[in-house]
Design a protein around this nucleic acid. Sequence first.
DNA 1: ATAATAAATGTAAAAAATACATTTATTATA
DNA 2: TATAATAAATGTATTTTTTACATTTATTAT
Lengths: 228, 228
Amino acid sequence: MDLYSDKDKFYVAVDCIIFGFDNEKLKLLVFNRKIDPFRGSLSLIGSFVKIGESVSDASIRVLKEFTGLENVYTKELRTYSSVDRDPGYRCISVAHYALIRVNETIKKLVEEKGAKWYDIDNVPELILDHNEMTNAALKRIEQIARYKPIGFELLPKKFTIPKLQTLYEAIYRRKLDPRNFRKKILSFNIIIKLEEKDRTSSKKGAFLYKFDNTKYKKLQESGYDFEI
Amino acid sequence: MDLYSDKDKFYVAVDCIIFGFDNEKLKLLVFNRKIDPFRGSLSLIGSFVKIGESVSDASIRVLKEFTGLENVYTKELRTYSSVDRDPGYRCISVAHYALIRVNETIKKLVEEKGAKWYDIDNVPELILDHNEMTNAALKRIEQIARYKPIGFELLPKKFTIPKLQTLYEAIYRRKLDPRNFRKKILSFNIIIKLEEKDRTSSKKGAFLYKFDNTKYKKLQESGYDFEI
DNA sequence: ATAATAAATGTAAAAAATACATTTATTATA
DNA sequence: TATAATAAATGTATTTTTTACATTTATTAT
């Protein structure tokens, strides 16, 4: 185990807690490690930070590497730095959470990398402190969702109000009233109704909407707080 | 300048954004550096993290060293890791903000260390990215203050409602209505009225209160959110 | 006795949150 | 082509919370 060790200097790593939404449940992306250390174990994705890049650049790089995606919504969660958190290196890890739009392309790409989506209430045992990171990230997005419209990061560009509601129900882990939810969301004036309907989940079909980023930015600048 | 440089390995540091409250204004503790690099410049307090300690242990150590205080309310803010943020080292800094109760002892101790309190809307130029850290910390406590009763960390154990209000006015940077503020605070049932009065700021005197940590913990567990 | 000072208090109006049930558009199938 | 089935869309009354606002009170100094 000490083969790869260097305990006299700091290593800096990033780990990414990647959340997705499959129109039903909130999911976590988990990787099956194909390399040592911890070959065969489950983990978040991560990487050492290179000497010539910033921590956030490292997380962007890692996300691109593993999902093919750029411009992913990514935020720093916190650092994990217990002296004995990694038996190999003296390594501090800066955990980041990311919200991504899951589609067929991503699904395939991610499978090729040996990754799998797990329901957030059914996350398997992960290496090191990765379960702790995951739990903290879940708490954080539940908190953040209260005043930032992060839900839109997880949905396709076009989405229906019922799907948005299902997502918030997944984040908050409780049922919401459809009338009140719709009223609230529409009151923010940050989604635009489209002509099209999505008929995949009902015969009547539900109107599609898109997020109005311009209006959101303006509201945000004026100090507005969303409380969904 | 490159005398102290080692750019091939990561250094990990902590910097602490220390806030205090003098019954009037919210203050930031700023140090006049007595050692190189940046001798004579103003900065936050900080230190390299030792190989044998965690990041949060380092911040606790630093706070003890510079203020003599233990059990200070301290939270991680975020990491600062631009490749060129420090011209000497390749150093990432994990910024922490701390809230402390200012009293005469602290005042003296801190002066001996060459530190000074600055109004938060009059912070001088600091070294490196320390002004950026300070601004981010201010934003953060404004945010956190909405749902955690952090105000009590900055006040003496015994405090009056008008002082608590002044503090919240300093954090939010706006005036609050004294009747509504009192009503709101009391509705949480997390402060206990004492028999004593504080007469330092009025002839009538204002009743002293103390924070009820037990009740707060219970409320918190039940998922309650403060919105002061 | 009076003036001065900040503390303490109550209420009405407006806004926001909640609880709750029916109708509508559409497709599949009888 | 009528009917059943499905989820989407909608409105209102009630409760709770927030806001706006002015006077009285306790005390000390003069």
